[in-house]
């Protein structure tokens, strides 16, 4: 995988744009997923994921090919996500309050329009709830939890992506886990 990616990076460095399209193809779903779970919004996730690829492209000559490309790419993306979350923090609480009702409205609308089966509705509600609970986590814990449990990355890689010592990553995962447990205690 890494050798394949490095071959494409070499082509990109020579100015071959199609080689970069192949890199985007390879990582698009994972990168989009990280952004979506971090931001909880499809529009923003798409925007930030594209921005991350764009920055990777522009700065590709700074990438050290002895390292793992995905780690470097995820690092760009998580930094962009955390920046985005912090920028909209002032109205975050308002946002969170609205989000629940918005979700309800959206789903009741779908139910009215399409008459979805009961179990489909149930499944969607769980998904909605998962995203909602992740979004309620402080951004510090959110990144660690998303990388650990959604992307299922090893701790050492998470530590590299977040540019934090291994011990700090563990602490954040533990605290994030505990915060989630408390949030879910009424489930």
């Amino acid at each position: 995988m890494d050798a394949l990616v490095n071959k494409r990076i070499a082509k990109v460095l020579k100015g071959d744009q199609n080689a970069f399209a192949e890199i985007v193809e390879l990582y698009q779903h994972q990168l989009y997923q990280i952004c979506y779970r971090m931001l909880g919004n499809k529009q923003e996730a798409e925007d930030i994921a594209q921005e991350a690829f764009m920055r990777a492209y522009v700065n590709i000559h700074t990438f050290d090919q002895n390292r793992k490309f995905s780690t470097w790419l995820y690092r760009i993306a998580t930094n962009l996500c955390i920046d985005r979350i912090r920028k909209k923090k002032p109205d975050y609480h308002l946002d969170a309050e609205v989000r629940g009702t918005e979700g309800l409205n959206m789903y009741s609308k779908i139910a009215n329009d399409d008459e979805l089966p009961e179990e489909e509705l149930m499944r969607m509600e769980v998904q909605e709830r998962v995203q909602y609970e992740i979004s309620r986590l402080p951004d510090k814990y959110r990144a660690a939890i998303v990388l650990k449990y959604i992307e299922e990355l090893p701790l050492a890689e998470i530590s590299e992506i977040l540019d934090l010592p291994l011990g700090t990553v563990k602490t954040r995962i533990h605290r994030g886990r505990e915060a989630l447990r408390k949030q879910l205690s009424n489930l």
């Binding site: 921005e51 522009v58 998904q127 609970e133």
Partner: peptide, 24 residues
């Protein structure tokens, strides 16, 4: 288990094309 029940999400089908259009 609850967090991991989050389904895997796919990027929109035109994601690659849109990303490439955004490159400088």
């Amino acid at each position: 288990a609850f967090v991991q029940s989050a389904s895997h999400i796919q990027a929109p089908s035109d994601f690659v094309q849109k990303t490439m259009a955004r490159l400088p």
